[in-house]
Design a protein around this nucleic acid. Structure first.
Length: 690
DNA sequence: GCGATCAGGT
DNA sequence: CACACCTGATCGC
């Protein structure tokens, strides 16, 4: 829950996501997204009165947020005071004090936040420095590096302060499976069930909040089944969403709600009242999206957990994980950071202890540390001509952070016109890879879940749903660690490979083996994969607040990147015979979803950028023509986003350097380094800090 | 009657 | 576990 008071220190005359108390006097308002805890006071009479007496006071938000907000009658009075700003389009705003006439100019840029439809971060630039307010966000590792407007030229902007979504800023939330992984797990479960008969339906037990739309869209696109919802009015001008939801209850996927929907479900009734079709009773399973997290050392990340005879929990997060937060912040490297949220049971001091080391003000006092891997990772994007040896491992070079260039398809889309030029059809890019199902044991997901633990013995009984002949854990182990690159260089440290950013196969491996610079104290790493088997040792540095961590070689390689959906015998039985009377107790882990070695997330359709930018069509493109408009949307705007999502999640971790100040070593320097390494010499480069 | 706040629920 | 939200009780205006 946001505890942000509404104002940033640098620009106290604007209020963001808070509209009560002192915020009533703000010169301008900003709303990052349409969740109630960010709208406190937004419809209060006091603020309403203020608007009535003012021509100048405006509320700035994304086009989608404006649309969603104005759908509610309670916020209609804002209608003439809302200014929708295009995402990624810097805009000058004059902040005028209506009583004194005092004026201050500020430039604001909306950046996609990946939290829910229309959600954005605000980047303010003005006399008091550059400030980033993240609102609520979920950005995958490396996504900050792709944001053109966080950069100036090839470098990250000099950001004074970040007001950060710290919801999961606690090491216990170290890892949350990516959107694609979660989506894929849910997709397979829904697919398995709904394909049995037309009377097998799924109820998505979603909360009353925006943020599940991309799930609906993906399920609908992949399975050709629209999702039944209570309301779709708010999407009337968002054909990309509208097309995939329906008010027609005669569908196999439901996300409808009812005040006592759990009771409905227990009575084999959907919240909308459906209980049978053509006289045939429905077979209903419920899937409840909720956040699942995994500690740093827990490598197996099952995204679906069976919680009962016909109930499942599916991993789904609106917020960035601990490691994503740290990656984000360590890339931005502001002077100051302020947490917007205190994770439950944490104090501000504790959170700051984690965040401060990622800021410049702190780093300046630190000894530079040797971080070869981060350096190497970053190297591929840099023109190394200006790199000298002294700079190589200099963590002080905060200004030398190169941004990640966008992919071509993305370039055109990000041309700030708000329009998309790609002519590729969306189906052309849909290359769903059927999951292979292996025999393997599962590990409990969240360390404190008793239910899973007591059922562990059952988990090992696994039937293969769709068998792949050679798919055993061993072959996976080999397969996942033997990349083309590595095969050809079996005996040499394949660092060369890591200068080339374009091998998605290596992305997750990279994640496993290359400690992010975001690690609180930085870390030294030794790395070898000469036999194709990953192996890594992380030893936290002396002043780290984190405990020493030495990863186990075997599990590290084994579980780091399998593309596996695992279904227990119980589930298979449930799926197969759809009889609910079996005496099976709660099965702990039903579907196990691993980081995919080389999957191209075909179903990565959530487009925080696209939704903010393109979704809201003009009124004339409303409901009546929604379908036609959608077709256009598919052709023109979806594909580039799809490319982006592919790139930015599961296959891009490798590309995205985690060490912001890394530099590209030149080949001769590299050679020198290799030689030193081979000779067992210390290549740590100490640089004097003044 | 309305809003704010809290407790309790999903 | 947590999130975002809802309902209902209570209090104050």
């Amino acid at each position: 829950m946001s505890r942000f008071g509404g104002r940033v220190r640098e620009y106290p005359s604007v209020s963001i996501d808070r509209f009560d108390h002192d915020n009533l006097r703000a010169r301008a308002y900003f709303l990052s997204h349409c969740h109630k805890d960010h709208m406190k006071g937004l419809r209060a009479p006091a603020l309403k009165r203020r608007l009535e007496g003012s021509l100048k006071v405006k509320l700035y938000c994304s086009p989608v947020t404006k649309e969603l907000l104005l759908t509610s009658r309670k916020y209609k009075f804002w209608e003439n005071h809302i200014v929708a700003l295009e995402v990624e389009t810097p805009t000058q705003i004059s902040l005028v004090d209506e009583t004194s006439g005092e004026k201050e100019d500020i430039e604001v840029t909306l950046l996609p936040a990946g939290h829910c439809p229309g959600s954005v971060m605000f980047l303010f630039e003005g006399e008091n420095g550059t400030v980033l307010y993240t609102g609520d966000f979920r950005l995958a590792k490396g996504e900050a590096a792709r944001m053109e407007l966080l950069h100036s030229g090839t470098r990250v902007k000099d950001i004074q302060s970040v007001y950060l979504d710290t919801t999961f800023c606690d090491p216990k939330f170290y890892h949350i499976p990516s959107r694609e992984e979660c989506l894929k797990g849910i997709l397979e479960l829904v697919r398995s069930w709904t394909s049995l008969t037309r009377y097998h339906v799924v109820w998505l037990n979603c909360k009353a909040a925006y943020g599940y739309e991309y799930l609906f869209i993906n399920l609908s696109e992949e399975l050709g089944i629209k999702v039944h919802v209570n309301k779709l009015d708010m999407f009337r001008n968002m054909p990309e969403i509208l097309y995939h939801v329906t008010r027609d209850r005669h569908t196999q996927i439901h996300a409808c709600r009812h005040p006592r929907d759990d009771d409905c479900f227990r009575g084999n009734r959907l919240p909308c009242g459906m209980t049978c079709q053509n006289g045939t009773p429905l077979h209903i399973i419920s899937i409840k999206p909720s956040t699942m997290w995994f500690g740093e050392r827990i490598k197996k990340t099952n995204v679906i957990v069976r919680t009962g005879e016909s109930t499942y929990r599916a991993c789904f997060s609106f917020h960035s994980s601990y490691s994503e937060i740290k990656d984000f912040l360590s890339y931005i490297r502001p002077v100051n950071v302020y947490p917007n949220v205190l994770p439950v049971g944490r104090t501000e001091d504790k959170v700051m202890e984690i965040l401060k080391p990622l800021c410049r003000s702190y780093r300046r006092n630190m000894e530079p540390r040797y971080k070869p891997l981060g350096t190497l990772k970053r190297a591929h994007k840099r023109d190394s001509s200006d790199t000298d040896e002294d700079d190589l491992f200099d963590s002080e070079l905060i200004s030398a952070r190169p941004k990640i260039l966008k992919q071509q398809g993305e370039e055109s889309r990000l041309s700030n016109t708000g329009q998309s030029e790609s002519t590729e059809g969306c189906k052309a890019t849909t290359t769903y890879i059927s999951p292979k199902v292996d025999f393997m044991d599962c590990e409990e997901s969240n360390d404190d879940d008793d239910d899973e633990e007591e059922e562990e013995s059952e988990i090992n009984v696994v039937q293969v749903l769709s068998h792949e002949p050679d798919a055993t854990s061993t072959s996976n182990f080999d397969g996942l660690t033997t990349t083309d690159q590595q095969e050809s260089n079996a005996d040499i440290p394949c660092w060369d490979a890591f200068f080339k950013c374009n091998k998605p196969e290596e992305s997750s491996e990279n994640e496993e083996n290359f400690p992010s610079s975001a690690d609180a104290g930085g870390s030294q790493s030794l790395f070898s994969d000469s036999d194709g088997v990953s192996d890594s040792t992380h030893i936290s540095s002396q002043n780290s607040s984190q405990s020493t961590h030495i990863s186990e070689q075997g599990s590290q390689g084994w579980d780091s990147q399998m593309d596996t959906v695992l279904i227990t015998s119980q589930e298979r039985n449930a799926l197969d015979c759809s009889c609910f009377g079996k005496g099976g107790s709660r099965a702990a882990v039903s579907i196990l979803q691993e980081t995919t070695k080389d999957s191209q997330p075909d179903n990565s359709r959530w487009k925080p950028l696209g939704q903010n930018r393109c979704c809201v069509k003009d009124a004339e493109a409303g409901t009546a023509h929604a379908q036609d408009v959608l077709a256009e949307g598919s052709d023109n705007s979806r594909t580039p986003d799809l490319e982006l999502r592919r790139d930015s999640q599961s296959s891009s971790d490798f590309e995205i350097p985690s060490t912001p100040d890394a530099e590209a070593p030149q080949p001769d320097k590299l050679h020198c380094l290799y030689k030193k390494l081979a000779a067992g010499e210390n290549i740590l480069s100490m640089k004097k800090v003044s």
